[in-house]
Write a protein that binds this DNA or RNA. Structure first.
Lengths: 218, 218
DNA sequence: CTTTATTTTTAGTTAAGTCTAAAAATAAAG
DNA sequence: CTTTATTTTTAGACTTAACTAAAAATAAAG
């Protein structure tokens, strides 16, 4: 139905729309896709002709309802495949992204229906990101960034903002994964660093770590 | 490593080499891939430059060892995914080909290693076709076509030569699948048709059916 | 409110993979 | 052993999706 390139653009725009608010800039798309702005302009114009995005020259891009639905479906497939890779094939959560980037483009409604059922209709992927339903609707959660948690409060880790292998491996080293309870013992206002407790261990984390970990307060 | 188009050409040549013997003709490749001979010539020349095939103008094409290995690996992936779709997702054996055509191009050694293990390292796919091992080696079986079986002999169905949905659905209707025992009760020399017994049922089959069913004699 | 910097777009190429139409080689028929 | 038919290849064109370089629009600075 849509080409690999088209699906990847829609997905990138979807993610950018959910981060910043309002129109997505050409440069932002180019950067997130590791391509050149001129290539983005080309593709955006094609997507606009197909009514998948609304595009005004020099003003930026927004997904139409149709574009949103397609993007959400690609993301649904990506995240379901990640669950498969981790739950069934015992991959580690830092190994699955690139494989899922390929699997997300497999075309078959029936396949995804059955895969979803096989996996027990999960609501979240291995990084804690919500899996859109058939209609592209995301379950909303009460998650906050760890950096927004006050001293002496407790939270349970529900996801990561960044999911680079480096970051995930850091978390493993510190024994932090989805479901881990974290207590904020101290918070430095100058640089945003924290002392936290995980299990019996207490240790220091930088602001950069704290602003990439999602928790649900307890 | 290789493009989707390249992998599909190598796979097609691999299959054709195993049917007829000797060089594979440009037209044969074109027909099997539903493309034009001129497109085939183009691609074959590229594959020859990459040392994946040996090609002599107007004479035909043969895979090199390297080409054979790549083709066998694509086929390995195709057949493992078919096992996944049937065994784990409960697809029917006539529904899996097109999805596997897409899945066979997913690039990840580790994925296939783990998938193979998850499936219990199967030797055959749902149509009875052998799954090449990591090195591209196919297990040889003692299979014969049902049409080559004599009157009053028994065989167990081990595979199909053709695997079109039409044929597979015919077999389902007749309650024939991999593992089904078949007894040849009668054989007409004029047209090759047969009377066979499957379970408690006895019925007539045409030569066309008999020459597309593989059995192992008991 | 000009000048400068940044962002975005246009114009023109390139590469992969396909196609049609025409030419060349091989095979088959008389 | 020519003529005809078939197969295969070449040449040229098209599409998708990328790129570079230059132009145009917008935003920021003085």
């Amino acid at each position: 139905m849509f080409t690999l390139a088209e699906e990847n653009y829609l997905k990138a725009i979807f993610h950018l729309e959910h981060e910043g608010s309002g129109e997505v800039s050409t440069n932002a798309i180019a950067e997130s896709m590791e391509t050149k702005p001129s290539s983005v302009t080309d593709m955006i114009q094609k997507l606009a002709e197909k009514k998948l995005v609304v595009y005004k020259r020099y003003k930026g891009t927004l997904l139409t309802e149709k574009g949103k639905k397609i993007a959400a479906n690609v993301i649904r497939k990506h995240r379901l495949w990640e669950v498969f890779l981790v739950d069934k094939l015992n991959f580690h959560w830092d190994e699955v992204h690139e494989i899922a980037e390929q699997l997300e483009h497999i075309q078959s409604e029936e396949l995804i229906t059955r895969l979803d059922k096989f996996l027990g209709s999960p609501d979240f992927d291995p990084h804690g990101d919500p899996i859109p339903d058939k209609n592209g609707v995301l379950k909303r959660t009460e998650k906050k960034l760890l950096s927004q948690i006050e001293k002496n409060q407790k939270g349970v880790c529900v996801g990561v903002k960044e999911s680079s292998a480096d970051f995930l491996q850091y978390l493993d080293k510190k024994k932090i994964s989805i479901g881990t309870k974290i207590t904020v013992l101290g918070k430095e206002f100058f640089d945003g660093s924290m002392i936290i407790q995980v299990g019996n261990e207490q240790f220091f984390i930088s602001h950069k770590i704290a602003e990439n970990l999602y928790v649900q307060t307890l």
